[in-house]
């Protein structure tokens, strides 16, 4: 059974330990600008929403890459950026409709969540259980992906 990250805004306190853990895992820095998971603060609602790539089935980024710099990890299902191959053209960053693949100026490459080879640093660092790595079926992630990929036509524009 493939696993995926389950993100629960109701538990999140906005401590950003996850962002530091991710940045540390990938760049040995605590600078959260380098994190692939982002916690969005909705101050006036009192909500903290952790958010990262859902490793969607469409793999928009992977398909869009002109030079084959994004690969599918057959074990974890993660879409992984191969840094040496990436030319930094940013096409994947606009192709991903979830906004979860980003260009990193310092490296000239893009970055996205790669599930840490199946041992997610963010989940380990989260003190509240807001991030867990669980069987994909349990996460409701499938539903979330389907929703996010769907066109919203609840009302006509005309």
């Amino acid at each position: 059974m493939q696993k995926s990250l389950h993100l629960d805004p109701n538990k999140c306190t906005g401590c950003l330990q996850c962002e530091m853990a991710c940045a540390w895992e990938k760049y040995e820095t605590f600078t959260i600008a380098k994190s692939r998971i982002k916690v969005f603060t909705f101050h006036h609602e009192g909500r903290f929403v952790p958010y990262t790539c859902t490793q969607c089935d469409e793999a928009w980024c992977l398909i869009a890459c002109p030079v084959d710099a994004i690969k599918l990890d057959p074990v974890t299902g993660a879409k992984i950026v191969l840094e040496p191959t990436c030319v930094g053209c940013k096409v994947c960053t606009i192709a991903c409709p979830f906004g979860t693949i980003n260009y990193v100026a310092q490296t000239g490459k893009v970055q996205k969540c790669d599930l840490c080879d199946g041992d997610p640093a963010c989940a380990k660092a989260c003190p509240t259980g807001a991030i867990t790595y669980v069987d994909a079926d349990w996460t409701g992630l499938g539903k979330m992906r389907a929703w996010a990929g769907k066109t919203d036509t609840t009302a006509a524009t005309a």
């Binding site: 306190t13 906005g14 401590c15 950003l16 009192g46 909500r47 509240t128």
Partner: peptide, 11 residues
């Protein structure tokens, strides 16, 4: 809700 400062695991 309760909220944390940066890096705080107390919140």
């Amino acid at each position: 809700t309760n909220g944390a400062c940066f890096g705080c695991t107390i919140a």
